[in-house]
Design a protein around this nucleic acid. Structure first.
Lengths: 214, 214
DNA sequence: TTGAAACATGAGTCAACATTCAGGTTCCGA
DNA sequence: TCGGAACCTGAATGTTGACTCATGTTTCAA
């Protein structure tokens, strides 16, 4: 949906008329809902077209195959997530604060996009390439953010590749646990606790004075 | 496999003869390999029985359905993983050190059990109950470990539920990235960097001497 | 030795889709 | 008002693969 890439939609450049664009949108939305609710393999194309309110054959006017919609959905979710995150972080005073805001925004985003979130996770098995790409792009931006922050002294030095994957993993699991499974939990409290861990780690805090290390 | 639970195998108590136990083992091993390599939906029962070297019908002597083997596999992986981890951690002098050892052992375990690892991840979509149970059991033990360590002052206080899920997520993603996708990476370096993040967080370290910030 | 419990087998059944296709319908510029 | 481009449709096709079952074979206790 939205205004992103249009290369995974059929062969050509996309719908030529307004009517076509509306139909495409309806199909993508319906597919997102169905895949998100029932999972890829349990979802029949006919259930997508039914939900979209179009004929079965229409699906193949817009997509070459079942897998293609799925891939389009994953790509779309990637673009949306990156957008939401960069928005939420754009006026953070420093990297540590950006982490706090980012984790919170991420949890909220997952909650409001459960279906597409499940689609992304399932992509690991349905469309591994799309899944890898999703996290590759993400990791790349994240890594640069960390590297620059480290240079500025806002965070410690470290193996950024490893850190990025650990942080993405933490967010992903929290998204699953508190965004998808248990959406009653207090996002504020969770993101606070999470960013505290990411920022300060498990080590006991040196009390305001005295004792630094062994 | 191994000597764990036997309640997910068919209706009855399990094979009565040695011959039967061997066949069951062969089927479980074959199923693990096939599911791990091709994924649940791409794997045909016939390919499992072929790999196991038994007839197709034999499969249904031991399992009620395709999903049942899958669930048995997830449960088995859970038991094995917990065992491997508790072994690796059993004589850690303190919790922080236990984290270090744990993350390292986990990465190594994933590498040597790639197939079953993929099975566990795919369970999220194939057998959600099994997946939730896998992490629930894990989280419970982990949480207690953290709570006790906090009481002893070995780690800081915090929301242990959140921390546990964040830490499990970090390990899981690192397992995927460095255990499954890129098994050339140096496990030692990765687990070192990871545990450093988990223990100390991203916050800049107060340098022993000079310069702290801008 | 024997019979029955345990185990093994693979051809055949059957339902579930993904995808195709031949034939419409709608839209719009000339 | 016409022609063709864009779009729509759903019955029919073909494949795939989980699961059944009727019929063996092996094991072993009595």
């Amino acid at each position: 949906m939205s205004q992103h890439s249009g290369s995974e939609v059929a062969e050509k450049t996309g719908p030529k008329t307004e009517r076509g664009r509306r139909t495409l949108r309806k199909l993508l939305d319906a597919a997102g809902e169905e895949f998100g609710a029932r999972g890829y393999h349990e979802t029949a194309i006919s259930s997508i077209t039914q939900r979209a309110g179009v004929g079965l054959g229409t699906f193949y006017v817009y997509f070459k195959s079942k897998e293609e919609v799925f891939r389009a959905l994953v790509a779309d979710m990637g673009a949306r997530t990156r957008h939401a995150l960069s928005e939420s972080v754009k006026d953070a005073p420093n990297r540590l604060e950006a982490e706090r805001l980012g984790i919170r925004a991420y949890l909220e985003f997952v909650r409001t996009h459960k279906s597409l979130y499940r689609v992304v996770m399932e992509a690991q098995f349905v469309a591994p390439e799309s899944y890898a790409e999703y996290y590759r792009v993400f990791a790349e931006a994240y890594r640069q953010g960390l590297a620059q922050a480290a240079k500025r002294g806002e965070i410690s030095e470290g193996n950024d590749d490893v850190r990025v994957w650990a942080l993405m993993g933490a967010s992903t699991f929290l998204g699953l646990r508190y965004g998808v499974w248990d959406d009653d939990a207090d996002v504020g409290a969770v993101s606070q606790a999470a960013s505290d861990l990411m920022i300060n780690g498990l080590a006991p805090r040196p009390k305001k004075n005295g004792d630094a290390s062994s």
